[in-house]
Design a protein around this nucleic acid. Structure first.
Length: 280
DNA sequence: TCCACGTCCTGGCGGC
DNA sequence: TGCCGCCAGGACGTGG
């Protein structure tokens, strides 16, 4: 399932593969995936060039030569691949961009969760999702002052708080479990009860973990692969996610799995203790 | 204003 | 063996 490091890996792959490519036409096989009619989508894009591919959080932003931007979110299992024109379409191919050089950029999505919005460039930050998105998890953007401020004024449990893209951009279920384990914070701990020193530690771990995952070309869980079809290597470094029943790599206690905010959550009950009077 | 929860969607898997 | 039904989860919309 793509999170920020996977989306960044896809962005880099697509930039090498289709930057400066001209679109001759677009077939939309699953209209619910886009925010306009398939006819409007095709008419706006045909004859135009993909000038640049940017990223904000987990959103890909395809900059088109006529002043439009395609905002693409891969959600759970969205993938792009590039095939020669005429290759048999996959069962889960939903959008096909025909390119002038005889190739096709295809969007595939097993669960049909992904979405594409076509908007005028400059208005993309008026679209739901991007409108309220929080800072990127980098040393420059995610300041300690900001972290302390949002934690002090929040009351939610830390896991759903970190999954909320309006607080910090790009963290998903896997990385939240990882950084909470690294920082020894229980996933149910209310954010305004976490000591400042631990928030500082959490911030450092978030930035470090995301940068290391980008360097490792993303995590691979289930079917994820990048635009070249390569599997990421970061799965080999996961320390708590998906390790239910196995010993904690720090203390040896058996890793437990619980449900938090409707999400499967792995944690070490010894390293990550809930402080104060809270019900699980 | 903040927060919880239902919804979308289909492959995989457990249970019978 | 085959069928049924549940589970997985990111982000948006709704309602408390």
């Amino acid at each position: 399932m793509p999170e920020l490091p996977e989306v960044e890996t896809v962005r880099r792959g697509l930039t090498q593969l289709v930057k400066d490519s001209q679109i001759t036409s677009v077939d939309v096989l699953y209209p619910k995936m886009i925010n306009v009619t398939p006819e409007d989508f095709n008419e706006t894009l045909q004859g135009q060039t993909i000038e640049q591919i940017d990223r904000r959080g987990k959103y890909l932003l395809f900059r088109i030569s006529n002043g439009y931007t395609i905002i693409s979110h891969l959600r759970m299992e969205g993938k792009y691949d590039v095939e020669p024109e005429g290759e048999t379409l996959g069962k889960h191919t939903h959008i096909v961009f025909h390119l002038a050089d005889g190739r096709e950029l295809r969007y595939n999505d097993t669960r049909k969760f992904g979405r594409m919005n076509l908007v005028k460039t400059g208005t993309e930050f008026e679209v739901a999702g991007l409108q309220t998105i929080g800072p990127e998890p980098t040393e420059e953007d995610l300041s300690l002052d900001y972290m302390l401020d949002i934690f002090k004024h929040g009351k939610r449990q830390v896991k759903p708080f970190l999954l909320d893209q309006s607080n910090i951009a790009g963290l998903g279920n896997i990385y939240v479990d990882e950084v909470l384990w690294m920082s020894k914070i229980h996933p149910l701990q209310p954010v305004n009860e976490i000591p400042e020193a631990q928030i500082a530690d959490l911030r450092a771990n978030i930035i470090d973990e995301i940068q290391r995952a980008i360097a490792g070309h993303g995590t691979t869980v289930h079917s994820y692969s990048n635009a070249y079809g390569e599997a990421g290597s970061f799965q080999n470094y996961l320390q708590v996610y998906g390790r239910k029943g196995e010993p904690c790599l720090r203390c040896g206690t058996t890793i437990e799995k619980i449900k938090v905010a409707q999400r499967g959550t792995s944690f070490c009950p010894y390293c990550q203790q809930l402080h104060g009077d809270h019900n699980e």
